[in-house]
Design a protein around this nucleic acid. Structure first.
Lengths: 127, 127
DNA sequence: ATAAATCCTCGAGATAACTAGAGGTCAAGA
DNA sequence: TCTTGACCTCTAGTTATCTCGAGGATTTAT
């Protein structure tokens, strides 16, 4: 079973522009083509692309994803490096979430004090 | 007690370029200036700027922050709208965190299966 | 008083990640 | 056969958010 670019786009909820862009950026070195040049997406390709989209949407930059993928697809592939990158990313995202929780608390605090903060601004004529 | 732009930058861990940019974008309509034009940051200003940076770093766009601030500083200020925006943002961020948690699980799953996903790519000569 | 540091504005440049249109190929259905 | 639609590449444009340098004024420290 294979898919076309528009089927994959729908399945993974991205645009075909994005898929082509990612491919151009070297994120899908594993893709095959038909004789006439159309991309062919196999099940396992979609597994990879799903991971790549997951990494992207959790904040990993394209150039880092490229590095990760390259470490899997090079002749002398260094799988450990890719695994390490994934685990590092996971840790970074968790830390990020921690910080966001903290910021949400700050926002909460500000919400409570907004009326007085607002007063200070509004009663500005006197300063 | 007042602060200069570089003191505020240090305090809130942003660059002075960013502060000027935010000001230019209308995020600090409450700021006063010295006779010669230098920005003066009062304690309450820093409260606001801290909130604004908090919103920014949790993903609120500048144009939305501007709207929020405008609703606080206009003549006929609509504080309720600002409060609503803050609470909506908070909810959106919480939902975002949920989704990220879910994506982390996906990444975890992929980490476990990376060796076999990798095999499939490496043994490509046969497909 | 003067040199160094800091401030200002304005406008241009940088960066990341798309987004889209032009112009063309190709395969399948009416 | 011809038209429709989906695909292709290439290039350029867009958006958001900074980032920085030039050129000039002002403040601070010696």
């Amino acid at each position: 079973m294979t898919y076309t670019i528009s089927q994959v786009a729908k399945k993974l909820n991205v645009t075909i522009y994005t898929i082509r862009y990612y491919d151009k950026e070297g994120l899908f070195p594993f893709l095959d083509r038909t004789a006439s040049g159309n991309r062919i997406f196999k099940e396992q390709d979609i597994e990879w692309i799903d991971l790549i989209c997951c990494l992207k949407s959790t904040g990993m930059q394209i150039k880092d994803i490229r590095t990760l993928i390259e470490n899997c697809t090079l002749e002398n592939a260094v799988l450990d490096k890719s695994l390490q990158m994934l685990m590092d990313h996971k840790k970074a995202v968790q830390k990020e979430i921690e910080e966001i929780h903290h910021k949400l608390e700050t926002i909460d605090y500000k919400i409570k004090h907004l009326p007085e903060m607002y007063e200070r601004i509004v009663n500005k004529p006197s300063n």
